[in-house]
């Protein structure tokens, strides 16, 4: 665990960047995590119970509208997790903070889980509404492609022995992958218009969501966001400890 800050800069960095120091980062997460776990658990329980038990059925969609409390937050986090990985990878490539790239690594499995939840809830919602589990609708297809990008990113991490090489290569892949994910999104939009004229399977729910559904949805979104942060902070701590254990073992082997 090299702390490039301390060798490069005579002055200790302060503010946000000081948490690039793994020891300080671990100290911070120890203090913040209990509250974060509690808050995320609380808002998830409140939001999901509120949504499941105390909201009316939609007059067109019936009780399936309750799936929204899982589908929308998980889809949101599936995309934002990748976005967070992109930012963290950039910080690693530019400022060489190990904590940053480890946070990106830690976020990937969480993103995969979110994508899976979004895809699954979408499928069981689509079945009664559209009469099919799966349609090659642009949004669905884009999520599937995003899922593949997550798998590739994690596979690359797993395949490379040297931690810094793995960090660099996965960061480059994350950057390039982001560009291609956006490209694919447009390509997929174009491609499906080429098949069906006009979208018969519109997923734009936000417009017609009434307040009864909106507030519990907000609570659920908050719960998913908090859970994401709790998981990523905790997992980053795990990655830091694994890295440090590895470094110590390597030193022992040399001695």
């Amino acid at each position: 665990m090299s702390m490039s800050n301390e060798t490069a800069a005579p002055k200790r960095p302060s503010g946000f960047w000081s948490y690039a120091n793994p020891v300080k980062f671990l100290g911070l997460t120890e203090r913040v995590l209990p509250a974060l776990w509690l808050l995320s658990g609380l808002s998830l329980v409140v939001g999901l119970i509120w949504g499941f038990f105390f909201t009316p059925d939609d007059f067109r969609q019936g009780s399936t509208v309750k799936i929204i409390y899982l589908h929308v937050p998980s889809a949101l986090m599936a995309i934002n997790a990748w976005f967070m990985m992109l930012v963290a990878s950039l910080i690693w490539l530019i400022r060489r903070h190990h904590v940053s790239v480890l946070a990106a690594k830690a976020a990937a499995p969480v993103g995969v889980a979110m994508t899976l939840i979004a895809l699954f809830t979408g499928a069981v919602w689509g079945q009664p509404m559209w009469g099919t589990w799966w349609a090659w609708d642009p949004r669905l297809t884009s999520f599937l492609i995003l899922f593949l990008f997550y798998l590739g990113y994690m596979a690359l991490w797993a395949a490379i022995e040297d931690p810094d090489t793995a960090a660099d290569l996965t960061s480059v892949l994350c950057l390039v992958g982001s560009v291609f994910a956006v490209l694919s999104r447009y390509a997929v939009n174009f491609w499906n218009q080429g098949l069906h004229q006009g979208a018969s399977l519109s997923l734009d729910k936000e417009e017609n969501v009434a307040d009864v559904f909106y507030f519990p949805l907000l609570v659920c979104i908050a719960g998913f966001v908090l859970l994401f942060f709790a998981l990523v902070l905790y997992r980053t701590g795990t990655e830091i400890r694994l890295r440090r254990a590895r470094a110590l073992l390597a030193r022992e082997a040399r001695a």
Partner: peptide, 22 residues
């Protein structure tokens, strides 16, 4: 990306195919 990985062929397919989509 995968030149340093032994038997990286399968991994490379996993990385390259999504990039081929557009």
């Amino acid at each position: 990306l995968t030149v340093g990985v032994k038997r990286g062929g399968l991994l490379m397919s996993l990385l390259v195919l999504p990039l081929y989509v557009p």
